[in-house]
Simulated scan of single mutants.
Amino acid sequence: MYKIAVMGDADSVLGFQALGLEVCPVSSAEEGHLALHRMAKENYAIIYMTEQLAAKLGPDIARYKDALTPAIILIPGKEGSLGIGMANVKTAVERAVGADIS
């Protein structure tokens, strides 16, 4: 059975535990690197990650970009949005459609 997790700083992710998601609070890029690769091996289908953490893990996230699992979805952290998540959605739509639709 596939699992779903949320990664990022503790203040941003602990609330997701109430929804039944597994939370993975990380405080450094190294912790995030190790946790991401561990979850990829442990049958996680979806990993929600704060944009702030994603900004530090660019090469690690790129490794899973075309993989079936895990799907890494960026969400705003407690500091607000950096615009990375929306840019990724726009890029994915352009790849799927073949043109910029905005």
Results as ranks from 00 to 15, higher is better:
1 M>N: 13
2 Y>K: 13
4 I>L: 14
5 A>W: 01
7 M>T: 00
7 M>A: 04
8 G>E: 03
11 D>F: 14
15 G>D: 03
15 G>A: 05
15 G>K: 10
16 F>W: 05
17 Q>D: 00
17 Q>L: 13
19 L>V: 02
20 G>C: 09
22 E>P: 01
24 C>A: 12
26 V>T: 10
27 S>R: 15
28 S>M: 06
30 E>A: 15
30 E>H: 14
34 L>H: 14
36 L>E: 02
37 H>T: 04
39 M>A: 00
40 A>S: 06
40 A>M: 02
43 N>P: 03
45 A>Q: 09
45 A>W: 04
47 I>H: 03
49 M>P: 01
49 M>A: 11
52 Q>S: 13
52 Q>F: 08
56 K>T: 07
57 L>M: 05
57 L>P: 07
58 G>V: 14
61 I>G: 07
68 L>A: 13
68 L>E: 13
68 L>F: 09
69 T>A: 10
71 A>V: 06
71 A>G: 03
71 A>Q: 05
71 A>Y: 01
73 I>D: 04
73 I>W: 05
74 L>K: 12
76 P>D: 11
77 G>I: 01
77 G>K: 10
79 E>M: 15
80 G>T: 08
80 G>N: 11
82 L>Y: 04
86 M>P: 01
91 T>D: 15
91 T>V: 09
92 A>F: 01
92 A>C: 00
95 R>D: 13
95 R>H: 13
96 A>Y: 09
99 A>E: 01
102 S>T: 12
